[in-house]
Amino acid sequence: MIDIVHITVPWWQVALLLMLGPAVLAGAVAGLRRLARARVTAGEAPDWSVPPLAAEGGDTLLHRWDVRCKIVTILAYSFMLAALSRPQPAVAAIGISLLVLVAARASAARVLIRLLAIAGFIGMFLVVMPFTVPERNGDTLIVFNQIPWLGFNLRGLGLAGTIAAKAVAITLLMEPLLATAPLPVTLHGLSRLGAPEMVGQMVLLSHRYLHVFRHEARRMADGMQVRGFRKRTDLVTLRAVANFLGMLFVRSFERTERVFDAMRARGYKGRFPEPAEPRLKPGDLLFAGLWLLAGLTLLVWDRMPS
């Protein structure tokens, strides 16, 4: 016996339903973007060639937390969250992440930008999954008269909602993970945990030069614009962009050689000096334990038969 609940609604509601999701999402994204932009431009114009290496000072629990504990705990906790499969624990996880954000006094604008970055991908799941999930026993299906082949499956919506909640919960933790210590300290924590030292150094170098090249790319783009170049969907644009990229690589490569020579001239022998000797306190471990316990609780709740 097939046990699928069908709810039939007039066909025009499918149009409404199809429009509603993207409309809400687009509205939310537009609002978030405006908010984020307002927060960012409130200060003076950012100088892209100088990366914000040091986190703005802060003296919260997360700033004082040992960096190795922080990396291990948040990484392990994120994997626990990724393993959740029911909506209730996933939504509870967002609550925990928000608490952490408040505790870390994270910048709202930067958190918003991170959320914006995943909005498109997650939005695709929310729009597509309800219509494409195969029908199973116990599903509730909203079907539209006159369009029998199109069914809006509530199980699919639930599944996509769970995915979205998990993604948001983990994304919210990125700011407490990365912005509560200066980047070199975080990277040294990583290498003290066993990652090759070269990795940290390469991230530092890339991060530094990324801002330089972005600045340079912007200058080149400004020059093109001043000369009347506008991007269109045609071959001329493709050729111009290809030349632009090629020029960027040539300039970058030549700079690479000079940077490396300069580093060696200053005595670079494959490592940078360590910022500070980290010392593990019992409180650090306690906090890590408590946090992981919260993650385990979520997991157990998730796996409990409802």
């Binding site: 390469m202 170098l205 890339s206 030069y209 090249f213 991007k231 493709l238 690589f249 690479t256």
Partner: peptide, 20 residues
Amino acid sequence: MPKLAVMTAAFFVASLISLP
């Protein structure tokens, strides 16, 4: 490796370029 790191930055910037 330091050279590779700097080249990576260039590729990263290239991947930020959007085309209509």
